[in-house]
Amino acid sequence: MARKKETAARKTRAQTRKGRKTERVKRAGGAKKVRTSAAGVKTSTRTRKKGEATSAIGAKRPAGRKRAKGRQAGGEKPGWRDIPRGGLIVKAGNAETYETGSWRTKAPAIDFDRCTNCLFCWIWCPDGAIQVKDGKVVGIDLFHCKGCGICAHECPKEAIAMVDERRTTHVA
C-alpha cells in the first residue's frame, strides 16, 4: 500500500518536472518520438506517458531563465550555465524515468498457476521490476526489466521462464 502511494507521488513529481527533451528521429516507416537521457542513450517512449521523462542530470535553470516551452529542436540541451555544477544530479529518483527495458533480449514470463507469491523474485530483482499488488505478484514492469533472468533463476517453483518477446520499438 505504502509502495503504491510512493509510486503515485513519484509519478506526480515526474509529471511536474521541467526540462523534458524530445526529438524526432526519422526512421523508415515514419517518425518516432524518442527521448534522450544525459548519458546519450536513446529511450523508447513505448511504455511512458508524455511528460514523464527528464534529463538524468536533473538540470534546472535558475529562476527567470526558463527555456521556451514546447518541443525543442533536435539535440538542444541546457548550456553550461544552466546545469548543476560538478555533474551532480541534485534531484533524486530519476532512475525511474530512465528506461533500462530496452537492453532486454529475453523477458520473464510468469506462470501464475505455479506462483506461490513467495516474492523471492521481488526481493531479488535488481530493478524493482516485479509488480506486486496486495502481496501478490501481478506482472513485470517491462520499462525497467533488463531481462537479467535473476527472477527466473531464483524462483523456487520454476514459475518464471525467460522467453523471446516480440520487440517492435527498438530504436536505431
Binding site: 548519458a39 538524468a56 540541451k77 553550461w80 555533474g87 551532480l88 544530479i89 533524486a92
Partner: peptide, 21 residues
Amino acid sequence: DHPLTYGPLDLFDYYFEHKRQ
C-alpha cells in the same frame, strides 16, 4: 532530505559543459 548523486555518466552530452564551468 535532499538526496543527490555524485559522479554520474556525463559523456559527450554534458562533459564539455562541466569543463566549461
